[in-house]
Structure formats: C-alpha cells, structure tokens
Design a protein around this nucleic acid. Structure first.
Lengths: 193, 193
DNA sequence: GTCTATAAGCGGATAGAC
DNA sequence: GTCTATCCGCTTATAGAC
C-alpha cells in the first residue's frame, strides 16, 4: 500500500522523533538531527509544535495512546483472570516487537530522568501511564486476591517497572519473562490466602 | 568533633556533587553551580579531576563502594538463608536513610540514562553494580533454590531494580517494602520445588 | 604550593528572522 | 527552506591571595 506519496511534514517529524529520541537519548539528540532525518525545516517544527519539549510531549502522548491500545487487545484476548492480570507483560513484549526500533527501556521513565525540570506537559504523560497501570492492575487483581488486591497490584506494577528497568541495566537477560514469572509467583501467593 | 576546619576542596567538591547531581539531574546541573555550592574554583576542579565526566565517575565509584559496604553489613547481620537473600532490600533502605539526600532513584541507572554516550569510566560503574548484584544474589539463592538458583536470583534482581525504578515512577508508595515482599514470594515459590 | 577570582574561548543547541 | 542571532555550558588562561 505504498503510494509513493510522502507523508506530511508533521507526521515525518513525529515518526523520526519517536524512532531516534529514545534510542540515542532525548537530551543527546539535537533538533538539527531530527530535522535532517525527517527532511523537515526548522520553521516547520516550530510552527507545528513550538519547541523541542512540546514535540517530545506529543511523541510521548502518542506512545501512551498506542500502548493503551496494545494492552487493551491483550486483555480482551486473555481467557482467565490470571492471564488477564499477566497480560501486561505480553502486551509489553508485543509493543516492543511491533515497533521496529525498541527503545533502550521506557520512554516515559527516560523522559522523567532526562528532563527532571521539564514542563508539566511532559511529566503528565508518565503520571498518565502510572495511573493507567495502577488502575487497571487493581481491577485485574480483585478476582484473584479479593481484599488483598491492592497488595497484589502493587507487586505486579513493581515487577512490570522492574522489567523495563531491566533493559536499561542489561540484566537479567530476558526481563519481560522474568518479570512475568515474578508476577505469577505473587499471584499464586495471593490466591492461597 | 567539629573542628571548624574546612574540608579540603576535593572533598567539598565530591560531597556537593554527590548531593546535587542525582537530585537535580546530572545533565541539568551546570558545573558552575557545583563550583558555587562547593565554594571551589574552576581551576581546582580541573586540576583534581580533569573534566565534569571524570568527577561524575569518581562520585559514582565512591557510591558503589559505600553501597557494597552497607550491603556487607546487612548480609552478616542476617541469621538465616532467606533473610540473607532479602537483605539487599534492607540494605537499600538503610543506604537511602543514611544519606541525608536520597537521590530520586538510582545514581547508576540515572547515569546510564542521562549519559548514553558517556566514557566507559562511567558506564563501568553500572556494570560493576550489576555484576555485584548478580554474583551475590546467585550465591545467596543457592541454599534456597538449589539447581534453580539462577532463576531465583534473576527474579530478585528484577524486584530490586523495580524497587529503584519505583521511586522514579512514584508508585507504588513504598517500593522497597513491595519489592521485598515480591522477592519473598519468589523465594517461597522456589523452596516448594 | 594549594587554592581563589575573573574572564574569555569555543563549540553546540534552541529559536526565530528573513 | 536557509540562515543567523543568541544563549549556555564546559574548559582553560591569567593573575593573585593565604
């Protein structure tokens, strides 16, 4: 379905930014490099977004939206309570596989570390991701852990966050698998209550 | 035992850097701010260390050494196999309590994120931390999980890393407690084999 | 001899003007 | 779409104080 038509400048810029920013590092990627790779002029960037920070924020919002969609699908596809809870790990594996350019670890957490004094527009996305995770994991924990659902949800969130940070650390070898097993052990412990 | 004597410039610089770099962010802290806060001249920094990167590297090496010492003490103090394995969490809580200025999350992982193209001198410290964790956790897992020690060690490392990243995410509320319980559940699952 | 104060060079990055 | 003003951060040079 390649039409030969070139995507509009705004789209090219967003896609380039998403591909480069989280591989090379947000701060380490000069705007000029993005412009050159996207074949877009500086004026275009500042008309459409206003600043590098605003571009970063928009890229992050798109990521969050995509991620939510992928997770949605995996929740629907799961056919029992345990698999629904653990589907966050399958969704993560799927999300990383689908984008040809896996980021070094997590775009939201990386932004929080690299841009500690960034405008709220940016930190809000991490907050949104965290809220999404916390809310859903709590719901999905109820059928398994009942009154201890919050406890289980906290543990699964931590295992998920650990899997992401495991990529940054470079250990263990397959962070998503290990995180999933860890969350599984936590769920088992809670279903024996 | 305060003598009124001022610590030497090199020491003041190291202490200031350790306090500020991981609170405000490594890249977001200009050298000038460190100099002003440490009441040290620029010439002193560059004669003692040679560059900002080299100063960062030295601060990280000191941190790794301190952290190893704290963990040592907690391993010795533990009086059974399970507590020895989980002592990494108690050591982390203790380490963070002892430094008056808890960093936002983990200095080594933050450096890896903020300085992706940093000299080996810097990335080596994260590698050293990871090797320390992986080696020790494997040893401490053997008495509990026997042939599955590597599996358990991977999971505890991931829970530990997740606790650190949990501070960055701001959730769950008490990452170290949650991480410890998670590792506990993993150990229990392995001791039932 | 160690440290301070000051200033300036220099590359690089953002942002906006033309 | 190009080009450039402006700023900022790291580093070094100079000269002097304790």
């Amino acid at each position: 379905m390649t039409t030969g038509q070139r995507a509009p400048a705004r789209t090219r810029l967003l896609e380039t930014a998403d591909r480069v920013l989280f591989e090379r590092g947000i701060r380490d990627t000069p705007v000029d490099d993005l412009l050159r790779q996207a074949e877009v002029s500086a004026a275009t960037l500042y008309t459409h977004f206003g600043s590098k920070d605003a571009l970063v924020a928009e890229v992050l919002r798109v990521r969050l939206s995509d991620w939510r969609g992928v997770w949605d699908q995996h929740i629907v596809a799961a056919d029992n309570d345990l698999d629904r809870l653990l589907s966050v790990f399958d969704a993560l594996a799927s999300y990383r596989r689908d984008q040809g350019h896996p980021s070094r670890w997590c775009a939201f957490l990386a932004a929080a570390t690299e841009l500690p004094e960034a405008p709220d527009e940016i930190s809000d996305v991490l907050a949104g991701d965290t809220a999404l995770l916390a809310d859903r994991l709590l719901q999905l924990s109820r059928p398994i852990a009942g009154p201890h659902a919050q406890d289980l949800a906290d543990q699964v969130l931590l295992a998920y966050t650990g899997a992401l940070a495991g990529f940054l650390r470079g250990s263990p070898r397959s962070p998503i698998d290990v995180g999933r097993r860890l969350a599984h052990a936590a769920a088992q412990a809670h279903s024996r209550d």
